[in-house]
């Protein structure tokens, strides 16, 4: 067998594993770990273009998709990723009412654990749910979105998409517009982009700013023109109808007028700007249809890249035995 013989520094992998058992958030990752995921995702992406879109890397491993919140997009993406790696997948969609009636998250997890899944992909409406699971379970836990806290694989696929188009992350001006307070996608993206050296601007109504937003290392403004001026990347976040009822802003029409991404606003950005949205989109609220379907949009690329990035994460966390957990 030919083992890779290392005689040059360039041949030495900077890091070839994540220094942790679980992926709970971008906040815990170091920049070299993020790079590792993105580089591995590149290799994974190629598998999707083969006639047989499958490799045996996770053969015999059981991955449970435990979704307490409904989700088609993310769950399907994970499922495809798992199957492409030849893992056995199990989808559990729990209607929230059954949790209210009976079993606690901890008990659900312990019962699952008894069947020895190798990995659990968890989406839950409470921030920190994945941390609870990671403390209880020996399986590797992947956070597919916990409450308002983080959605790390979304940020990773966003970064992958940006790098694909722009060949880098450092130094780019990235404007993120939307419901910043409630968005886990925002938090994960802020962590990742600032760690990788991007210049991040967040924009929305002040009612939707998390406290002390600038402590996250970003510029904050309520003026969308300021945020998108000369931007390399514009990321739109979903506005939920319920927020209107919580008196965060008066109406969706007003939101669109003040913050919606229109072609006119787009022209303030760089000529090769890319438009991103984690989905699902509210056309006519945070983004105009023409922009969503226009030439600058990479929204569908994001979806495609989601599978490759999730394959990379599954692969990197799946390694046979105990990984050292981060201190």
């Amino acid at each position: 067998m030919s083992a890779p013989v290392i005689t040059r520094v360039e041949d030495m992998p900077a890091v070839t594993s994540l220094r942790r058992k679980d992926l709970l958030g971008i906040a815990d990752l170091a920049p070299d770990e993020i790079s590792l995921v993105l580089e591995t995702a590149e290799a994974m992406k190629e598998i999707g273009s083969r006639p047989i879109k499958k490799v045996p890397a996770l053969r015999g491993k059981t991955v449970v998709n435990l979704f307490f919140e409904p989700s088609t997009r993310t769950r399907t993406s994970f499922e495809i990723a798992e199957k492409r790696l030849s893992a056995d997948t199990l989808n559990i969609a729990i209607a929230s009412s059954s949790v209210v009636k009976g079993e606690t998250l901890a008990d659900t997890a312990l019962n699952l654990e008894a069947m020895q899944p190798d990995m659990i992909v968890l989406r839950h409406s409470s921030s920190g749910a994945c941390h609870l699971l990671a403390r209880i379970c020996r399986s590797a836990i992947i956070n597919a979105g916990d409450g308002m806290h983080e959605h790390p694989t979304q940020a990773l696929l966003d970064a992958f998409t940006i790098r694909e188009r722009k060949q880098r992350l450092a130094g780019l001006k990235v404007a993120i517009v939307g419901d910043l307070l409630h968005s886990r996608v925002l938090r994960s993206n802020i962590h990742l982009l600032t760690k990788m050296g991007a210049d991040v601007w967040v924009c929305g109504p002040p009612t939707l700013f998390p406290t002390d937003i600038t402590r996250f290392g970003v510029r904050a403004t309520s003026r969308v023109d300021e945020a998108v001026a000369d931007a390399d990347v514009i990321m739109l976040l979903r506005i939920q109808l319920e927020r209107m009822e919580g008196a965060f802003f008066p109406s969706l029409r007003e939101y669109f007028n003040v913050f919606g991404m229109t072609e006119a606003r787009l022209r303030l950005a760089k000529p090769d700007v890319i438009i991103m949205h984690p989905g699902p989109m509210n056309r006519g609220v945070e983004i105009a249809s023409e922009v969503a379907d226009g030439p600058f949009s990479v929204i569908l690329d994001q979806v495609a890249n989601g599978v490759a990035v999730r394959m990379a994460v599954l692969y990197l966390l799946a390694g046979g035995a105990e990984h050292e957990t981060a201190a």
Binding site: T16, A43, A57, A318, G319
Partner: peptide
């Protein structure tokens, strides 16, 4: 051809890193 994902010792490392996966072209 990158054969990392087909190795038979892939998930059996006692300690240590996963092999780095590179592109197949």
């Amino acid at each position: 051809l990158d054969i990392t994902l087909y190795r038979d010792d892939l998930m059996r490392h006692a300690v240590g890193p996963q092999p780095l996966v590179r592109r197949t072209e």
